[in-house]
Computed example of a mutant assay.
Amino acid sequence: MARVIFLGGLGRSGTTLIERVLGEVPGICAVGELVHLWQRDLRDDEKCACGSHFWGCDFWERVGIAAFGGWHRVDVHRVLALRELVERTRHIPRLATRVPAGYADLVREYADYYVRIYEAAAAVSGAEVIVDSSKHSALAHVLRYATRVEPALDLRVLHVVRDARGVAYSWTKNVLRPEAAADEMTRYSPARSALLWTAHNAAFSLLRRRGVRVRTLRYEEFLADPEATLRRLVTFAGLDPSAVDLGWLERDQVTLSVSHSAAGNPMRFTTGLVPLQRDDAWRTHLAPRQRAVVNAVCAPMLKAYGYELGVKR
């Protein structure tokens, strides 16, 4: 049975850093945002975080053989068609209820591709736990169906939340994707990101009510005490925190090694010493009107997660 920590939340919430830190723990293997593997890696042959292109990466070659007998045997068009049918935010209301048998078969077929990769990555890496930082709430709801069939999936969702104002400001930045020449990451207006922040976080709350093991973590809490937070996450992953050496993790910095993150934020390519510090540039750079919009949209959930609305510039 594959044991998976699914990192959920809206992008720009710190999930990539948390994924990388978790991936340094012995017994845990972080594989990046698998939701993008089908298009960016199998189809477009973008770079793995190790620096090799996906089709030339030894780790992913072995995973493909273990999972499918080789990546060439995967019908990428079929996977992307299934994704369109079942793994979209608009499908969450249907996924959260009792779906018709025919539709459930499609959901399980799509989920099975991920289960195979999780099991193969665990076998190739020798890890007990796989971290998938796909973030998409719809995919988390899809994976819930994989917990009901054999081989079952031990799904544990780490729901990462960051202050919506900080997330909104981050989505306005121009961020290049080094693995894709002349390509930039998506940008959203503060109003758009506020709506997405609310929708995605609400979807993970709904997932908890459907019986999935969900732990919510505020990104700011992780940065305030990385070691204590990581030990709690190691426990959540089902490992013994007392047996884990965290000498590579300090209060204000972490040492990151090369990973095999398949897709995600450009930070997945970063190695060596990385500072652990809050990015509160939004307090001075997010325009008052934009902040007011985010506050208006996100106020109920900001309060629920313990964020203050009346933060001074």
Results as ranks from 00 to 15, higher is better:
Leu286Ala: 03
Pro151Ala: 12
Pro151Cys: 11
Ala67Leu: 04
Tyr219Pro: 09
Ile18Pro: 06
Arg192Pro: 06
Arg192Cys: 15
Leu106Lys: 11
Asn295Trp: 10
Gly14Ala: 12
Val234Asp: 09
Val129Pro: 05
Ala104Pro: 04
Arg313Ile: 08
Asp45Ala: 08
Val157Phe: 04
Val21Pro: 02
Pro190Ala: 01
Gly310Trp: 10
Ser125Val: 09
Ala191Leu: 08
Thr172Trp: 04
His159Leu: 05
Asp75Ile: 12
Arg90Val: 12
Thr284Ala: 14
Leu309Ser: 02
Ile18Lys: 01
Arg83Asn: 13
Leu206Tyr: 02
Gly69Ser: 13
Lys135Asp: 03
Leu207Asn: 02
Gly64His: 01
Arg187Phe: 07
Ala224Ile: 04
Thr284Tyr: 06
Thr147Trp: 08
Gly23Pro: 07
Val79Glu: 00
Gln290Ile: 07
Arg116Asn: 02
Arg78Gly: 09
Ala263Leu: 03
Leu217Met: 08
Ser52Met: 09
Arg165Trp: 04
Pro190Asn: 03
Phe6Tyr: 14
Tyr114Trp: 11
Ala181Lys: 14
Asp252Asn: 12
Val161Pro: 05
Tyr307Lys: 05
Gly70Thr: 07
His72Ala: 13
Gly32His: 01
Leu246Trp: 03
Leu153Gln: 02
His72Glu: 15
Ala304Leu: 10
Leu217Ser: 00
Gly51Cys: 07
Val160Phe: 08
Thr216Leu: 04
Gly27Ile: 02
Leu207Cys: 05
His285Asp: 14
Gly69Arg: 10
Arg43Glu: 14
Arg268Pro: 07
Asp44Glu: 11
Met185Cys: 12
Arg209Pro: 01
Val293Asp: 05
His72Cys: 05
Tyr219Asp: 04
Val244Met: 10
Leu206Pro: 02
Met267Pro: 09
Tyr169Gly: 05
Trp197Arg: 06
Arg156Asn: 11
Val175Ala: 13
Gly310Thr: 10
Ser242Thr: 04
Asn174Glu: 15
Ala199Val: 13
Arg98Lys: 14
Val86Asp: 01
Gly11Gln: 09
Asn265Asp: 11
Val142Phe: 01
Gly238Asn: 06
Ser52Pro: 05
Glu109Val: 01
Arg218Phe: 05
Ala30Glu: 03
Val99Lys: 11
Leu246Gly: 09
Ala96Lys: 12
Glu46Gln: 02
Gly51Thr: 04
Leu223Gly: 06
Ile5Leu: 13
Leu37Met: 13
Val157Thr: 07
Arg78Thr: 11
Asp240Trp: 03
Thr15Arg: 00
Gly23Asn: 11
Ile130Val: 15
Arg156Gln: 08
Pro266Cys: 05
Val214Glu: 09
Ala304Gly: 11
Arg213His: 13
Val254Ser: 01
Ala49Arg: 03
Arg144Val: 06
Arg12Ile: 09
Ile130Gly: 06
Leu230Ala: 00
Ile28Asp: 01
Gly23Trp: 03
Val254Ala: 04
Asp245Lys: 14
Asp58Arg: 13
Arg209Cys: 15
Ala296Ile: 05
Trp171Leu: 02
Arg148Lys: 09
Val76Asn: 07
Lys173Tyr: 00
Asp225Thr: 04
Arg192Gly: 03
Gly32Asp: 15
Trp71Lys: 02
Ala237Val: 01
Leu34Val: 03
His285Arg: 14
Ser257Gly: 14
Lys303Thr: 14
Glu109Leu: 13
Arg83Val: 09
His72Leu: 08
Arg40Ile: 11
Leu276Lys: 00
Val157Cys: 02
Tyr169Glu: 07
Tyr307Glu: 02
Asp58Pro: 13
Ala96Phe: 04
Tyr188Phe: 14
Ser205Asn: 15
Leu206Phe: 01
Glu119Ser: 15
Ala237Met: 10
Leu158Phe: 03
